[in-house]
């Protein structure tokens, strides 16, 4: 037990994330068909997908698989899939007819480099690839349980599809769109609806599908779902705080954009101090859900929650 707690305190989060990012990038690179035509479409997909980023969603997926006792490689196809979906939503979100952003992760956005129609198509193709990658037998290591694995994969795909569709991610984008451009302030519950859908839904999917593939029980899956929803909302609250406290250079994207566009944010509704308090509340809600898991196995999820709460960009 002493060794276990020592291991927990000495958990090297930076190394953990670095190793996962390398493995995820390798999986993403291999998943986009290389050498198959049309080369320019695959280039655009690769450009958007391999632009960097910390791979927080894949890491959550892998960590959720591990926390329920599943081998991490089983969840790698799902981890790659959630990053593809995330990238796709950014590519479409940045389009001139949507948020009209020129800069993403410090680089010109996909439509700036490849043109609008290719960016629409590259996004669609990434979305298809995410489901194709998850549903293909060949994506998984040979040691998966041939009896239980297909049912888990089907359930996980259903979960991912539900979380990103018109009742999840897209619902958040729609309500966000409808709020943008109106001069009135968005009430708190509306703001929470937007973020629970626009941001938290994909984090929820990342965690839940990792746990499903890893063979988690229904009770474990539901606890992890609560954990994910808390850190999902937390992610956005922190994002709002960073937007008013950091520069574009520090963020790698346009800072102060929320203020410039008169967008409703947590700092605007609650003030900066109360927003920070809310963030701490969400963090402790999330951490509470991890109590029933093995401490050592839960260390990555614990540190991921802390990282999301205290990140600087």
């Amino acid at each position: 037990a002493a060794a276990a707690s020592a291991a927990t305190t000495e958990f090297d989060f930076k190394a953990y994330m670095g190793e996962r990012a390398v493995a995820v990038n390798r999986a993403l690179d291999a998943a986009v068909p290389a050498g198959e035509p049309p080369a320019a479409l695959h280039d655009a997909m690769r450009y958007a997908l391999l632009a960097g980023g910390k791979r927080v969603r894949p890491a959550l997926c892998l960590a959720a698989c591990a926390v329920v006792g599943g081998p991490e490689p089983w969840a790698m196809p799902a981890a790659a899939a959630v990053e593809m979906v995330h990238t796709m939503s950014l590519v479409h979100d940045d389009l001139p007819c949507m948020d009209d952003d020129d800069l993403r992760r410090g680089k010109p956005t996909c439509h700036v480099v490849y043109g609008e129609p290719i960016a629409v198509l590259a996004g669609d193709a990434l979305l298809s690839l995410s489901f194709h990658h998850m549903a293909s037998v060949g994506s998984y290591p040979p040691d998966v349980d041939p009896e239980k694995h297909p049912a888990r994969v089907v359930r996980a795909i259903g979960e991912l599809a539900r979380c990103i569709g018109s009742e999840g991610l897209v619902a958040g984008q729609v309500v966000d769109l409808e709020m943008t451009g109106t001069s009135e302030t968005v009430p708190l519950e509306r703001l929470e609806y937007i973020h629970l859908h626009k941001t938290a839904a994909l984090l929820e999917a990342s965690v839940v599908i990792g746990a499903i593939i890893g063979g988690g029980t229904d009770e474990q899956i539901e606890r992890l779902r609560k954990y994910a929803r808390s850190i999902g909302l937390l992610f956005q609250v922190v994002d709002d705080i960073l937007d008013v406290t950091k520069s574009s250079e520090e963020l790698g994207k346009t800072a102060g954009k929320d203020l410039a566009s008169d967008k409703t944010t947590y700092p605007k509704l609650l003030g900066l101090e109360k927003s920070r308090e809310f963030a701490e509340e969400l963090l402790s809600d999330a951490v509470e859900q991890l109590a029933c898991f093995d401490k050592e196995k839960a260390a990555p999820l614990l540190h991921l929650a802390n990282y999301i709460a205290h990140r600087q960009n």
Partner: peptide, 9 residues
């Protein structure tokens, strides 16, 4: 754009 994005899943 969003209707298409939602119909796929």
């Amino acid at each position: 754009v969003l209707a298409g994005d939602a119909l796929f899943p």
